[in-house]
Design a protein around this nucleic acid. Structure first.
Lengths: 193, 193
DNA sequence: GTCTATATCGCGATAGAC
DNA sequence: GTCTATCGCGATATAGAC
């Protein structure tokens, strides 16, 4: 299984550097130091490689974005979640750079992505709701404000990195942290006292 | 100049429907009812067509997103701006669906996009600041909260449509309006009284 | 301005030897 | 599992006639 994983990590690097459109299976094979034929032995085609990378991303989301299950979440937990998400998204940055284009070409992947994403969003919604319940946020739990705040936090979590990447330079730690700041700015009016 | 414009509108439609990656110059020519050679007479290559479409988008932004210059802007103006922006982005929806990929392949376009976008952001920043000055928002004009609110409104304005498009269906009017709602939710805590 | 014809290229994918 | 060799295809781009 070593070659199979090597292909994936090579492809990830190339996709992150140059985008999926400019990278062919030949490029990946050459960069991985194997023959094109060998690549096709391990993966049906480029689409399969992209799918496998998405699955790695899904697995990371699944394992690293867990909520504490023994206590109520705090504001720090929420910030940590967003920071971790930024890290994961940076490692797989080609994904959100061309997400809609990638999903349009692969209906099965699209469906799966939407499902996974929905789970992630609901986790977010749950945290905000629990913060409201525990009084960290001064919002009635049943209020639609909870939904709005969750939507806003989610939007930042998903699209803050693409936003700063538009300017061209690599996303610096300081710029990413600005995203966390903005999320807190959204919530700040609801801090008690 | 009729053919030249016809090529553009045909390409726009195809790009919006199927993305730029899947559409070749041959496809565009065929859909436009002209020969491939003729297309190349009018445009150097596909990149040139994409650039021309970006220029159309820039022109729309420039003419349609103007602030009132005879009075202070209102909250309604801000909402109208975002709605208009949504309309424009929908007409050129292929752009934000694969923005970072498109810009990476064309340094000159990238530079120009960043400049135009910067102008747009500053206009936004200006509105929020004026809303603060005129007391529509209860925020000290010099406060960093103005920057945060401007950043948040801008993020919604740019990425709300891509967000809802992830779910796969065409962006409905109701879903787009939700973006306006979220922007108001960001500002609401700062409404006077 | 527009067409047809064509040259060149690289990609995706497979067959068959090792 | 891995390689070499190769086929077929479609995309880009140009030449030259009309």
């Amino acid at each position: 299984m070593k070659t199979k994983e090597h292909i994936l990590s090579t492809a990830l690097q190339l996709f992150n550097e140059q985008g999926t459109a400019g990278i062919s299976t030949n490029h990946i094979a050459e960069a991985a130091g194997i023959s094109p034929g060998n690549l096709y032995y391990h993966y049906r085609n480029k689409e399969a490689i992209i799918r496998a990378l998405f699955e790695q991303l899904f697995a990371l989301w699944d394992t690293k974005l867990a909520l504490p299950d023994d206590r109520l979440p705090t504001l720090d937990d929420l910030q940590g979640l967003v920071r971790t998400n930024f890290e994961i998204m940076w490692a797989y940055r080609f994904v959100y750079r061309e997400l809609l284009a990638l999903l349009r070409g692969d209906a099965a992947l699209h469906e799966r992505f939407v499902m996974i994403r929905q789970r992630g969003y609901e986790g977010f919604r749950e945290i905000v709701s629990l913060l409201a319940q525990s009084g960290v946020l001064n919002v009635p739990t049943s209020d639609e404000t909870v939904d709005e705040l969750a939507d806003l936090c989610w939007l930042i979590s998903e699209f803050w990195m693409p936003t700063i990447e538009i300017n061209g330079e690599a996303a610096s730690a300081a710029e990413l942290e600005r995203g966390v700041t903005l999320m807190l700015a959204v919530l700040r009016p609801y801090f008690p006292d």
